[in-house]
Amino acid sequence: MVESRFECFLCSLRTVNILLPSREAAYAHGIATAGVVFAVSQACREGYLTNCGCSRKKRPNSLHRDWIWGGCGDNIEYGYRFAQGFVDIREREKNHPRRSPGLARTLMNLHNNEAGRRALYSHPEIACKCHGVSGSCSLKTCWNQLASFRVTGERLRQRYDSSVRVRFNRRGTKLIRANSRFRKVHKEDFVYLEESPDYCVPNPETGSLGTVGRRCDKNSDDMGGCRLMCCDRGYKTRKAKLSERCHCKFHWCCFVKCKVCERIIYIHTCK
């Protein structure tokens, strides 16, 4: 059920009001902050920024003793600090009264921003380059490197699936898990205050247009597949005639001449 809701949220991301303190808003904050860390860290390495350069991270103990620690790694430390100041400043400048809904949302956003940063900062990779005659790799130079953003996005997706609902503590000073039977909240977890609305149906209050009428692929089990896109409501199929260029040939000199071919296609839309 969580997976289906997440897919529907992505389908409607452009129109959904992420001001709702739901797990989707938590994901949006986390991945946006991770994107800042990723972009700035790599910009430092490429020399696009004057305030930073290559990573200065110390040699890890796990690295082979004969390998050289050097090269120019992604400056994850600077990217983390930059995102911490740049992204969080908007939340920290807000002045909410104690126990107010606004304060709870601010604490939620700050926590999820940190979770997004840690998805990169806490999971660096070591990249190496071989040296030696004819690529014998008798010597290696290694450096610190970010994981690909696809890997980071998948890690954040897993955080979305396991996100924890929270509430104020009795003093109204911090957020704690809403249900004490659930596991404790860690810094890399996403947290949210309210359950997600149903993004499958239109809802003017949340800004969701729903998925009625959206095109889908009946042969796919991914996000664009009819099962997920249509939220198990089923889909309609219609035939359409598609005209496209075909049998193109190059003629000397110098133009391409094509014929126009027509074919019948089937279009599937959600009910």
Rank of each mutant, 00 (worst) to 15 (best):
F6T: 05
F6C: 06
E7T: 02
L13V: 07
L13E: 12
L19G: 15
P21Q: 06
Y27P: 03
V36H: 09
V37G: 03
R45K: 15
G47M: 01
N51A: 13
G53M: 02
R56D: 11
R56A: 08
L63V: 11
L63I: 14
W69P: 01
C72Q: 04
G85K: 12
I89V: 13
E91S: 05
E91Y: 03
E91R: 06
K94P: 00
P97R: 15
P101Y: 10
L103N: 05
M108C: 06
N113I: 06
A115W: 00
A119C: 08
P124G: 06
I126L: 09
K129C: 01
C130L: 11
C130P: 10
G132V: 05
S134R: 14
S134F: 15
G135M: 03
C137N: 09
L139R: 15
T141R: 01
W143V: 03
R150P: 00
R155K: 13
S162A: 13
V164Q: 12
R165E: 14
F168H: 12
R170Y: 10
T173C: 05
S180G: 10
R181L: 13
V185K: 03
V191Y: 09
V191W: 10
L193P: 01
T206Q: 00
G207R: 03
G207D: 03
G213K: 07
N219V: 04
G224K: 08
C231D: 06
R233G: 02
Y235C: 02
Y235E: 01
T237Q: 12
A240Y: 06
R245M: 13
W252A: 11
C258L: 02
V260C: 01
I265C: 01
